[in-house]
Amino acid sequence: MPFDQAEFKIRCEWGEQGIRQLAPISEVVVIVDVLSFSTCVEIATSRGAKVFPYRWKDESALKYAQSIQAELASFERRTDSPSLAPSSLLNLSPQSRLVLPSPNGASLSLLTGKTVTIAGCLRNCRAVASWLSSCETVAVIPAGERWPDNSLRPALEDWIGAGAILNYLQGSLSPEAEAAVASFQHYQGSGHRLHQCSSGKELIAKGFAQDVELVAELNVSDCVPVLTNAAYYIKNKVPQAIALTGIPERGI
């Protein structure tokens, strides 16, 4: 099909339709929802937690959490209890079980079927790329946000995050993947751009500037969360010498 980028080893496409086109023909799918699902998953799993993605923010989420003996993250972004604010997960206890409802990153995670699925962000981009180095075909999916009419809003932070992972991968890149890499390379060293993009400005206006700082940190984690039996957790860490060679960057 013309939209599946099948002639390339490394692929990239937006959102739900990207999953539907690329997941069935790819060995691994990487979900990139920088602000903030995939960053939350990285922070939580790096602390030993399991994260169960859930699509709906309604009563069914609580019932699901209760059925698997897990804590439900707050529907509202907050810092005093687990939520979609990355800063709220910094002190998460090891062995925690957390249901994380998200209409973007969580929804996409649940659409990949039997394809191996990873959560990637700026914080773990090089570690994710190292994990993927032996894979034959890879699809990197920037999640994007939603307009009020529920249509996809391509989000700069997810495009940069996808490009950050793709930047470290070897093999034939689709034109879409090359464009994401170019975007990452253009903005690398300009972390203030995440403060100025639509999603960043929205969070700062709501009092979550710390979250924007957290998501902008580059290559500070060797955690690679893999979706297994409905939950993200660390199956195995990338060796520090491989994932974080040299001095890690501290922001895009």
Rank of each mutant, 00 (worst) to 15 (best):
L72Y: 09
Q210S: 06
N236Q: 15
S46K: 13
E217H: 12
D149E: 10
W159Y: 15
L110I: 06
L108I: 05
L152M: 03
L244V: 09
T39C: 01
R47M: 08
V34E: 05
C223E: 06
S81A: 14
A129V: 11
A119F: 02
S96I: 03
G207C: 03
P148D: 01
R250I: 03
A73H: 05
L100C: 12
S93H: 12
L98V: 10
E202R: 15
E202I: 01
E7A: 11
S134W: 02
A6S: 15
G189D: 10
Y233I: 00
N91F: 07
Y168H: 15
P175D: 06
G200A: 08
A231H: 15
E16S: 13
L194T: 01
Y168I: 06
P24E: 08
S174G: 00
A139K: 08
Q196C: 05
R55Q: 13
Q69I: 09
R55V: 14
V28R: 07
A61F: 14
F184T: 13
A180T: 11
A65P: 00
P154A: 00
W14L: 10
A180M: 12
N236I: 00
P24H: 02
I25K: 09
S26Q: 07
P175W: 06
V128T: 13
L166N: 06
V29Q: 01
P248I: 13
V212N: 05
Y168A: 15
E213A: 12
L100S: 07
G246P: 00
W159M: 11
Y54N: 07
N167A: 04
A119T: 03
E16C: 07
I25A: 01
S198T: 14
S107V: 04
E213Q: 14
L218W: 03
V30Q: 08
L132Q: 10
S172L: 14
Q188I: 15
V29K: 02
A129D: 12
F208A: 00
C135I: 03
G161L: 04
E16R: 13
A73P: 01
G120L: 07
F3N: 11
Q69H: 14
R11G: 04
L132S: 09
V99S: 02
L227S: 05
T112M: 02
N236D: 15
A143Y: 07
V34Q: 02
P24S: 01
A127L: 10
A162W: 06
